[in-house]
Amino acid sequence: MTARRAVVIGASHAGAQLAGGLRQEGWDGEIVLIGNESALPYQRPPLSKAYLSGTCSLDEFAIRSKEFYAKQDIQIVDATAVSINRSSGHISLNTGEALSYDKLALCMGARPRRLAVPGADLAGVHYLRTAVDVEGIRAAAVAARRAVIVGGGYIGLETAASLRTLGLEVIVLEATDRVLERVSAPEVSAFFTRIHREEGVEVRTGACVVALTGDGQVREVLLADGEALPADLVIIGIGVEPNTELATAAGLAVDNGIVIDSRALTSDADVVAAGDCASHHMARYERRIRLESVPSAGEQAKVAASTLCDGSKEISMLPWFWSDQYDLKLQIAGLNTGYDEVVLSGDPARGRDFTCFYFRQGELIAADCVNRPRDFVFSKRAIMQGASVDRADLALTCAT
Rank of each mutant, 00 (worst) to 15 (best):
V209A: 06
T244L: 04
R219I: 10
N256D: 15
L223I: 10
L233S: 03
A264F: 11
V254F: 03
V259Y: 06
R263G: 08
G251M: 13
D232G: 01
V218F: 00
I235G: 00
L265E: 13
A264T: 13
E245R: 14
D215W: 07
A211G: 08
I260G: 03
A228L: 07
G216L: 12
T213W: 01
G239P: 01
V254L: 09
T213R: 05
G251E: 13
P230G: 08
T213K: 04
T248F: 04
E245D: 14
R219K: 15
S262P: 05
S267T: 13
R219E: 15
A253W: 00
E241W: 00
I258D: 09
A250W: 06
E241K: 11
E245N: 12
S262N: 13
L222P: 00
A228Q: 09
V240A: 13
R263T: 09
G214D: 10
E245F: 08
G239V: 07
D225M: 10
G237N: 08
E227C: 11
A253V: 05
P230D: 13
R219T: 14
P242D: 11
L229D: 10
V254K: 02
D215I: 12
D232F: 01
I258S: 02
T248I: 09
V210F: 13
A231K: 01
L229C: 05
T213I: 02
G216D: 15
V221G: 02
E241T: 14
A228P: 05
G216K: 10
L229W: 10
L252D: 05
L223R: 07
V254Y: 03
V221E: 06
V218S: 00
V259F: 07
